[in-house]
Design a protein around this nucleic acid. Structure first.
Length: 474
RNA sequence: CGGGCGGUGGCGCAGCUUGGUUUAGCGCACCGGACUGGGGGUCCGGAGGUCGCGGGUUCGAAUCCCGCCCGCCCGACCA
């Protein structure tokens, strides 16, 4: 564990791993690329999950659980899908002492297994739509790994739906995409760009892929969630057919969509500062921490006041009193800042005399003196303010770091001094996309939905193209 | 998977170049005690290490050689 936190402004990659370990979100496991999500990190994940799960259910989906192991033959059914995932699949080849007749893949995603089951379950138009989500762990054999952002095993949620028509499936794909956007913005205070992925970034086996993309504070983009229209590729490969109202047998139209523990990495990078994490109040494991300032003479008075306030606030928020006697107040301040607790309340003898508490915002470090009688009202307001301000600061940052460019040369010029999103146009030819990538190391993060600036000359070949956001990415 | 760097008490490091007076040190953390307590306190005492793992060279290896594992940074592939 590093002793002192590296400054975020000086060395972001180092800061990132330091802060995660020092804040006890996660630790390295003995197997390459694997991590232990520690109680504080897991609590953050649980809060995130609880809110997202509710939104998934509100849109009509039900949770289920499919197995971890997938027979090789299933994975092979959809040609592009196999090829896309081949380099990242881990295999079980032996059970007990015996070699298996057929290798079993540890799921890199569950399309194959779920499609197999859907082919058994779906017979009639009356069985549709099928709207299922699962929370699961996933294994992908990655070359380069980073805590939360890319680990060999990770946790996620994957929705898998089947519909009678393309129109319905497309409606579902977009519904979930915008649900992700709302979730990221409202709960994680994470503004995102929304759009379609280019052909080269499309999910293996999908018709097309949409994504939410967030700009991190080092100017690199992070794909934060994806929503795929699988078309009928998997339905044909797995023989998922239904008898429609017109008495004709048809293949279903499918979607899948997911977000993962990567979101935690995004929250860390997006909001944190030199002092450590800054967690959005909605999902922070601890929203308010109360630190007593006491000595032997004042311990009783202060302790009583702290406990009384803590109990009262429990009804309003996730609050903790830090009564540890072995640490001094200054030490605690630093620790809670490192861990990103949104609000700190200090209570000492001087405050008791004045009938107040000291309240400090983590994001701005603003210190407020609040009469004891007004603390309850103030807390709710301040937590809301922090949530809103984090979001607004991130939006401002994104606006300041979005650059309109008309050519690769112009982009490279900007890249010499700035990182961010390059707002340009692209003719949708893969050759031009590859050229941009080669010369700038940026990729198309997404093609936003139609707007007034949606067409213009391609930044490479100058032929008419669609609007596209480019950035270097995680 | 290439290129670079690293792995020595829990953490961060020194020692390695030039193998042996080093009984493997230092800082922080940890344990006991005292004084303390509004931004990472002070003093006293204490415990803790098969030097990443496995081979090899040697009278002798933390130190030299080979292989492997893990991490970090930079590139090609990906949530």
């Amino acid at each position: 564990m590093p002793e002192k936190l590296t400054k975020k402004s000086e060395n972001m990659p180092r800061w990132y791993t330091d802060v995660i370990r020092m804040a006890k979100l996660a630790d390295y496991a003995p197997v390459k690329g694997c991590m232990v999500i520690m109680p504080y990190g897991f609590s953050l994940w649980e809060n995130l999950k609880e809110n997202l799960d509710r939104k998934i259910k509100e849109t009509g989906h039900k949770n289920a659980y499919f197995p971890l192991l997938i027979p090789e033959s299933f994975l092979r059914k959809e040609a592009e899908h196999v090829e896309g995932f081949a380099p990242e699949v881990a295999w079980v080849t032996q059970g007990g002492h015996d070699q298996l007749e057929e290798r079993l893949a540890i799921r890199p995603t569950s399309e194959a297994m779920i499609c197999h089951m859907y082919s058994k379950w779906i017979r009639s138009w009356r069985d549709l739509p099928v709207l299922i989500n699962q929370w699961a762990n996933i294994l992908r054999w990655e070359m380069v790994t980073r805590l939360f952002l890319r680990t060999t095993e990770f946790l996620w949620q994957e929705g898998h739906t089947a519909h009678a028509t393309y129109e319905e499936s497309e409606e579902e794909v977009l519904r979930m995409l915008f649900m992700y956007r709302d979730f990221a913005e409202e709960y994680l205070a994470m503004p995102v760009m929304v759009g379609r992925k280019s052909e080269s970034e499309r999910f293996a086996g999908a018709l097309h892929t949409y994504a939410i993309e967030a700009l991190m504070s080092d100017g690199k983009a992070l794909q934060a969630g994806t929503s795929h229209n699988l078309g009928q590729h998997f339905a044909k490969a797995f023989d998922i057919k239904f008898l429609d109202k017109d008495e004709k047998e048809k293949y279903v139209w499918q979607t899948s969509w997911g977000v993962s523990t990567r979101l935690i990495g995004g929250i860390v990078m997006m909001h944190g500062d030199d002092a450590g994490l800054i967690l959005p109040p909605t999902i922070a494991p601890v929203q308010v921490v109360i630190v007593p300032i006491w000595d032997d003479r004042t311990k009783d008075r202060v302790g009583t006041a702290v406990n009384e306030l803590c109990e009262s606030l429990t009804k309003l928020c996730r609050v903790e009193a830090d009564l540890r006697d072995e640490y001094r107040p200054g030490w605690k301040f630093n620790e809670h800042e490192l861990r990103g607790v949104p609000v700190r309340i200090e209570i000492g003898p001087k405050d008791l005399d004045k009938g107040q508490v000291v309240l400090v915002r983590r994001d701005t470090k603003e210190k407020m003196f609040v009469p004891r009688g007004e603390v309850e009202d103030k807390i709710s307001k301040v937590l809301g303010d922090i949530q809103r301000d984090l979001y607004e600061r991130a939006v401002d940052f994104r606006i300041k770091h979005t650059y309109k460019v008309k050519s690769v040369e112009e982009m490279n010029e900007m890249l010499e001094r700035e990182r961010g999103i390059f707002d340009s146009h692209w003719c949708e030819d893969a050759a031009c996309e590859a050229k941009v990538k080669q010369e700038t190391k940026t990729t198309i993060r997404c093609i936003p939905f139609d707007d007034e600036q949606s067409s213009g000359p391609c930044l490479v070949c100058k032929k008419p193209g669609v609007r596209a956001y480019f950035a270097r990415a995680y």
